[in-house]
Design a protein around this nucleic acid. Structure first.
Lengths: 126, 126
DNA sequence: TATTTTGATATTCTATTATATATAACACTT
DNA sequence: AAGTGTTATATATAATAGAATATCAAAATA
């Protein structure tokens, strides 16, 4: 199924929830202001590509342009990379703001609840 | 290899070249102004997600957030979806503006020079 | 129980930049 | 020189990004 703004944003939100970090935490890791993250996740901002890449990276996700025809194969890989349902974080359990089951048309975004990684060395971004 | 702004933009440029259409053509298909496409492809604009999705869709590409760990598998699929080197379009052959071989760190973006498809029926976008 | 503290997310305001329109520049063909 | 196709640039407007602040709800304390 083709992605919309909403699908991408939902993938970010789900990724953050899966990692069990707050908007404030994510802000600290990426430099994107928490207020902006709030707007993004609420669907109240049309995010720039550079911000999307920044946030995705912090959630161990990558922005890719993939051929539409390869979507079924790629979705299959993403699904097989998906961990079992993570234990809800405290905030998530009590609040569950905006977090919903992925719509049928959208494959579950992939993430893994690994141990918290330090920022790996990587190319510096402007 | 993780994607940067430049990688995504290059994928768009390569996709457009592969499809053999002009910036004006792409503009007509997406509603994104040709002048903006020029800026985007020149690296002089930090494109918004909605515009990225629009342009990608016209090029039969999809924006996806994929798990970093799944990148090797996904890159492999993209590579196998890659057609043989398309015959250069007239403009591309004569000008070759900004079109370069993909850097080693970036897998070739995937596209296929199929017959020109009419716009498929799809959900209307705001 | 009531109040205060704490943690998380949402809203407001402003400067910078993306977007949209109009136009210019470039190169080839006739 | 004029016509054609393509890409780049100038300018005005609209929206994002960032800082500051507000709101909400649970936990801690008196």
């Amino acid at each position: 199924m083709t992605s919309t703004n909403e699908d991408i944003i939902n993938a970010l939100k789900t990724g953050r929830a899966a990692k069990g970090i707050s908007q404030r935490d994510l802000s600290a890791r990426t430099g994107v202001p928490q207020s902006h993250i709030s707007k993004i996740e609420s669907g109240n901002a049309d995010i720039r590509l550079s911000s999307l890449i920044e946030l995705a990276r912090a959630l161990e996700l990558e922005v890719k342009l993939v051929p539409r025809k390869a979507l079924p194969a790629i979705d299959s890989i993403i699904r097989s990379n998906q961990p079992p349902r993570p234990a809800a974080t405290r905030a998530q359990h009590l609040r569950n703001q905006g977090m919903q089951e992925s719509p049928a048309s959208q494959p579950r975004p992939a993430y893994r609840l690994d141990e918290d990684e330090e920022n790996p060395p990587g190319p510096e971004v402007d």
